[in-house]
């Protein structure tokens, strides 16, 4: 399963299946009077075929190892979602601090002082956006 080409094909087929099977829930209609499910089904089928072709092709070309590192993307995503959740329930300043501190773990080096400085500058920028550009930011 560590073959990039194979995983890519399977991934595309999975997307095609998710959308294709969901589109069966909607009315298909006929070609002369296509329902809401017709076009998504056609496109999903095409995508499935391309995924299948990619899988078949992966049998014939040299395997390429798949590299991934879930740590960094996870940290960044937690930072973004935490920003949204904290901004909704507490305020955006907390969100900014959380975003900076959380995502910085993904960086090559970690420094609390630097993070505090970045947070301070970003909060300043957010204040400018709110006061002078009229952005509707829930800062407090």
């Amino acid at each position: 399963m560590n073959n990039l080409n194979l995983v890519r094909g399977l991934f595309l087929m999975a997307i095609a299946l998710i959308f294709g099977l969901t589109s069966l829930k909607y009315k298909l209609g006929e070609f002369s009077r296509a329902g809401p499910g017709m076009f998504p089904l056609v496109v999903s089928c095409l995508l499935f075929l391309i995924g299948l072709a990619t899988v078949v092709r992966s049998r014939f070309v040299k395997p390429v190892p798949l590299n991934y590192n879930m740590r960094n993307i996870a940290l960044v995503l937690i930072g973004l979602c935490g920003f949204a959740v904290l901004s909704a329930h507490l305020n955006m300043i907390a969100g900014i601090v959380f975003l900076v501190f959380c995502s910085s773990f993904a960086g090559a080096s970690y420094s609390v002082v630097r993070n505090l400085k970045i947070s301070a500058v970003l909060i300043g920028i957010a204040l400018v956006f709110q006061r002078f550009l009229g952005l509707n930011l829930p800062l407090f």
């Binding site: 973004l80 900014i96 975003l99 900076v100 995502s103 960086g107 090559a108 080096s109 630097r114 956006f129």
Partner: peptide, 15 residues
């Protein structure tokens, strides 16, 4: 430096 830039880029993406 990138270690300062990337939290800022994420912040601008959010805003």
């Amino acid at each position: 430096p990138f270690s300062v830039l990337f939290p800022s880029i994420l912040f601008f993406c959010c805003i």
